[in-house]
Design a binder for these strands. Structure first.
Length: 306
DNA sequence: ACCCAGGCGATTG
DNA sequence: CAATCGCATGGG
């Protein structure tokens, strides 16, 4: 079908957006840049994109409406207004100025959950490789421009996946957590999409539920839950704290905390009590869009040379 | 060889 | 409750 390969242009002059920053921000792991074009599989469609200034060139295959792009890249978010609301100090101001146009992405919650279960105690290139192998092994094959792509596996596919096969993909001890999560979602014991309608704290409680004094979702703690809430469930006040954000706190935001608290967290490893205390303070400081601040600060600490 | 990574589970005290 | 410790894997 000729129409499937129609290249379209989106005018970004009134909606600030930076595709490279957004896709390099560690939110999503299934995108790849080839010959200057970004290729990604979103739900069941291949997206091919390139930005040149205020113009976003893209092809969706099979074709979808423009809302598909708006929804995924949250182009409906009033970015200037959001960034203005979180711009509280010179550090975040510097991050905003450097990486202006970085947006949160609205991912599929299921893919997001599995991605960040795989992300624990791991490095981004390795996470990308794991997600790629999972997709090749259990996703559906798509062809486009003579290239082969794979959708992210459905919950039903991973629920009956072979444990040793997942381990051979490099998932290690996370393999059993992935299968556990897949069984819960496939059986509809856990309905991720209903969490979109709940507030941040209630939705987080759902992800961290215990059943007979045992966690329902294995491999999901505060950090993974916060990532899923922020990147896929519309909870923009979620403030995930990983080792990098902890460095941001210690280096640039220690004045927001008691002095002995800072010396305490330098000695101890991050535990739930420390995590919640920091996250609550940063939510109070940055406000309802603290998640955007988190993402700009994450990009800042990862990319700026100090 | 050792250390680290978008942390968390299991086991102890 | 809180505090330790081990963990699969790959790269520096």
């Amino acid at each position: 079908m000729e129409g499937d390969f129609l290249e379209r242009v989106l005018d970004l002059s009134k909606t600030p957006f930076n595709l490279d920053y957004t896709l390099n921000s560690g939110q999503v792991f299934k995108w790849e840049k080839m010959d200057g074009w970004w290729y990604g599989v979103v739900n069941d469609s291949i997206l091919k994109m390139k930005q040149m200034g205020n113009k976003l060139f893209f092809t969706i295959h099979p074709d979808r409406g423009i809302e598909f792009i708006y929804n995924y890249f949250r182009l409906d978010d009033n970015l200037p207004s959001i960034l203005n609301s979180i711009n509280k100090d010179p550090i975040i101001n510097d991050a905003i100025n450097r990486y202006y146009g970085l947006r949160l992405i609205r991912q599929d919650p299921w893919e997001c959950l599995i991605s960040f279960i795989c992300a624990t105690n791991n490095k981004i290139p390795n996470i990308q490789r794991m997600i790629k192998r999972l997709s090749e092994g259990y996703g559906n094959k798509l062809k486009f421009e003579g290239k082969v792509f794979y959708t992210f596996p459905k919950p039903q596919s991973l629920a009956y996946a072979n444990l040793d096969k997942l381990k051979s993909y490099g998932l290690g001890y996370r393999a059993k957590f992935v299968i556990n999560a897949a069984k819960l979602v496939a059986s509809q014991e856990l309905d991720l999409n209903k969490l979109i309608h709940l507030d941040y704290y209630t939705a987080r409680e759902n992800l961290l539920t215990k059943h007979m004094n045992r966690k329902l979702l294995l491999g999901v703690g505060l950090k993974v839950a916060d990532c899923v809430l922020l990147f896929s469930l519309n909870k923009l006040n979620s403030f995930p704290i990983d080792v990098w954000i902890l460095r941001v706190i210690i280096n640039f935001y220690n004045h927001l905390f008691d002095k002995d608290f800072i010396t305490h967290i330098k000695e101890k490893r991050l535990n739930d009590w420390i995590y919640n205390k920091i996250a609550e303070r940063m939510r109070a400081y940055f406000g309802d869009f603290a998640g955007y601040a988190q993402e700009y600060l994450y990009y800042y600490i990862r990319h700026k040379s100090f």
